[in-house]
Nucleic acid binder design. Structure first.
Length: 184
DNA sequence: GCTCGGATCTAC
DNA sequence: TAGATCCGAGCA
C-alpha cells in the first residue's frame, strides 16, 4: 500500500481536498495497533480567504499552515475539541485541508463515530501533540494510504460548514450517498 | 492585559 | 437552540 507523499500534498489545495476522498487515514497507537478509516469529507482553506487561520499571516497558531505540504495541523477549538488538517502546497504558502469525516473499515469502530472533525479526533485520539508532524514518512504516527480516485459523479462539492467568513466558497467535498459524512 | 468568538457537538 | 469550556488573536 502506497503512502501519499510530498508530491501529493504539494498540489493545489482544492485538488488535494477532492483527491483525499476515498483515501485511507491511518493512526499508529501507543500499543502498536493501527486504526484505519476511509476519508469521506474534506474542506479546503487557503491564506487568501478570511475563514483560514493563515489569512492574517503567521502567528503562533497558524505557523504550521506555512510549513511544507504533508505536515499535520492540529488545533484546539471551542474549549474542548480538536480538528485535524493536512498542510498543502509549498512552504510559506498558508493552506490546508480539514478532514471532516472518516468511515470505519470492517466495522473497526461505531458507524458515524468519526462523522465530524472533532469526533474523528476523539476516535483517533488526535491532540495538539501531533501538530507539525510530517505524515509523509513511512514510520509516522499518522499516514494516509493511497487509493483509487473517485469518479466525478461520486463527489459532491458544496459550501463549507461552521464558518462565518467566505461562506460562499464551494470548498467542501464529500462522497455522495455516504452514511458517514458529518452533514448532507 | 482583557475580551471575544470560534473550521463543534450533545442534550434540553 | 442553548450551553459546555478555554485559548489565541486582536484590541470590540
Amino acid at each position: 500500500m502506497t503512502i501519499l507523499g510530498k508530491r501529493f500534498y504539494e498540489q493545489d489545495t482544492l485538488t488535494v481536498a477532492k483527491k483525499l476522498l476515498g483515501k485511507i487515514f491511518c493512526k499508529k497507537n501507543a500499543d502498536g495497533t493501527i486504526l484505519k478509516g476511509k476519508i469521506v469529507e474534506t474542506e479546503a482553506y487557503t491564506q487568501e480567504e478570511p475563514a483560514c487561520h493563515a489569512y492574517r499571516g503567521k502567528t503562533k497558531r497558524s505557523e504550521t499552515l506555512f510549513m511544507q505540504g504533508g505536515t499535520l495541523y492540529v488545533y484546539f477549538i471551542y474549549g474542548m475539541y480538536h480538528c485535524v488538517n493536512v498542510v498543502t502546497e509549498k512552504e510559506n504558502y498558508g493552506s490546508a485541508v480539514l478532514i471532516r469525516a472518516i468511515e470505519p473499515i470492517n466495522n473497526n469502530f461505531e458507524k458515524r463515530a468519526a462523522a465530524g472533525p472533532a469526533k474523528l479526533c476523539k476516535i483517533f485520539n488526535i491532540t495538539k501533540e501531533l501538530n507539525k508532524i510530517d505524515i509523509t514518512k513511512r514510520n509516522s504516527i499518522i499516514r494516509i494510504e493511497d487509493n483509487t480516485d473517485l469518479k466525478e459523479n461520486e463527489i459532491i462539492q458544496t459550501v463549507r460548514i461552521g464558518i462565518s467568513n467566505a461562506t460562499e466558497l464551494p470548498w467542501r467535498f464529500y462522497i455522495k450517498d455516504n452514511q458517514s459524512v458529518s452533514k448532507k
